[in-house]
Structures are given as structure tokens and as C-alpha cells.
Design a protein around this nucleic acid. Structure first.
Ligand SMILES: [Mn+2]
Ligand SMILES: [Mn+2]
Ligand SMILES: [Zn+2]
Ligand SMILES: [Zn+2]
Lengths: 131, 131
DNA sequence: TCCGGTGTTGGACACATTCTAACTTTGGAC
DNA sequence: GTCCAAAGTTAGAATGTGTCCAACACCGGA
């Protein structure tokens, strides 16, 4: 399913700007910031404005096609992977890597009295080992 | 051990400003932002500047007396609890609650090939059940 | 074709944080 | 006790991320 179809299915009118943003952000598994999306999208859509990038990202988040994650200081990153998973943050490069849900087991969350847990993830920080 | 002793032990000259910040931030188990520290500290030290609050917080972090946490969008929060623990973020109030390390068990982190994990925590988001 | 709604744009604004440059305080050296 | 260099503090400027706004452009149905 290509970007046009994805937008159509979500009831989003597929303007060139929205297509450019959606194609970039929904395809990769990097965890780009809004500004990284803006920079990337300018190649295919040179006149796009920062406001439209922010508007489109918010739209995609509200429609459930994209998730926001609070993983880096001072910026929001966007995540096209919508199924539950964990994150490893490389403290040197800032790069964020997905860790599959099945790779880690977390026990005890359902027994935390007083907390109604809507979302849970393990956040790991460290260095990615060079190959 | 009071704040003066803590600062002395870390080799930090105990100015009135630093004492006010340290007394507030090291005592509580809330997870205040820099601005919340600034507001709180003005009661005891009305002339303190934002720059000094930021300087002192960074100093405490660098000396290992305080930790920074990336848990809320757009702001850094500070954490006086230096032993490993997890966090529950109330999505309504923004309040952050500590979850004891022993309350949750995480398995599999040591088998993640390619990642050198320096730090690990479970981040839970949801609503705190009202009593 | 016309028109109202929708989308886009650049710049203004808001907020968190860092930087800067001047001023103040401090703790020895003498 | 005086003096000085180092350390600390300060207000405000600068930077960076994100939102808001008002004007303009586009589009789809009457
Ligand atoms: Mn959200
Ligand atoms: Mn840190
Ligand atoms: Zn992810
Ligand atoms: Zn904590």
C-alpha cells in the first residue's frame, strides 16, 4: 500500500506536501525529528514550509498512522512503527534503534497498585557496538 | 547529611544559591523541571537568577548527585533518586512517579546483540488511579 | 464560473535552555 | 588588613524547537 492509499484510507486529502512527508516518515524505521523530516522532504518538495511539516506530522499522529516518542532531550521524534516495541538510544550518535517487543520480557506491571498503565516500554541507553 | 556536607563532599563550594537549589532538589522525590526549581528556590533566595539555577543543576548532575531524565515533552526533569528505578508518567497531570526497581523484572537485555547497555528503565504511561 | 472550505506559507510568537559579558564575592598571598 | 586572581552570579541576548496567525492558494461541489 503506497502513501496515497494510506492517506486516502485515513481520510486525509493527499496533497503533494502531505505525500512527501508521509512517504518519507512512514517508510523508514529511523526516528526522525520534525526538522529532519523537513530537511529530507525539501528534496522532493522544495517549497514546503516548516508549518506544513508540523501540521502534517500532527495529522498523521492524530489519525494513528504515526507515533510520537519522548526519547531525546528537547525534541520529539516520530515513529512509524505502531506496534508495541522498545527503544535503544545510542548516547553517542543520538540514533534510536527499535528493539522488538519479544526481545524483552517485562513482568510485574499489572501488579502496580494505583497505576492504570496505558503504555509501557523499556528504554535502553548506551553505545551501539560497531560491527 | 545536610546540603552543606553533601556539597562539600562533592568538592562544590557551598554558596547560598547552590545551597538553596541543592536543598530543594536533593530532598524531594518529585521530578522537577529547571523552572520549577527556580520558582521553588526564590522563596529562600529571592535574587537568584535562572542562569544560576541551570548552572547549579548541571553541576550537581556532573558531580553525580542528581540525574537528568527525558520523560516529558520539551523539558528535562531532574531526579534525586540515583539508584536504578523505573518511572510512571501520569499523562493527565504530567506528574512522574518512581517505580521501585524490584517492582518490575526485565529479562533479555543482556542478550541484545550489538548493543552495549549503560542504562535501562521501564517507562510506563497512563493515569494514576485516584484513591 | 463561483464560492466556501481546506491547505499552505512565512513570519511572529512562546518557551526551554545556553551563552555572554559585566559585576560581585571569595579565599588565599603578602 | 589589603590586594588580586579565580570563582560565582546576574540580566539579558541568543539559539533551538514548536505553535500560532493572517494572508494567500487551491479545490470540489453547486
Ligand atoms: Mn502523544
Ligand atoms: Mn545525561
Ligand atoms: Zn520505534
Ligand atoms: Zn525517578
Amino acid at each position: 500500500m503506497n502513501a496515497i492509499e494510506v492517506l486516502a484510507q485515513a481520510g486525509i486529502r493527499p496533497t503533494p506536501q502531505r505525500l512527501a512527508v508521509a512517504e518519507f516518515v512512514l517508510a523508514g524505521r529511523t526516528h526522525p525529528t520534525a526538522d529532519e523530516v523537513f530537511a529530507a522532504v525539501q528534496h522532493t518538495c522544495p517549497t514546503i514550509s516548516r508549518a506544513t511539516v508540523y501540521n502534517t506530522l500532527r495529522l498523521l499522529v492524530n489519525k494513528g498512522l504515526l507515533r510520537e516518542q519522548v526519547l531525546r532531550e528537547g525534541v520529539t521524534v516520530f515513529d512509524a512503527e505502531r506496534t508495541a516495541h522498545h527503544h535503544f538510544v545510542d548516547e553517542e550518535t543520538g540514533q534510536i534503534h527499535d528493539v522488538p517487543w519479544e526481545a524483552l520480557k517485562v513482568y510485574g506491571a499489572d501488579q502496580l497498585g494505583g497505576f492504570e498503565v496505558h503504555d509501557l516500554q523499556v528504554v535502553l541507553r548506551g553505545r551501539r557496538r560497531r560491527a
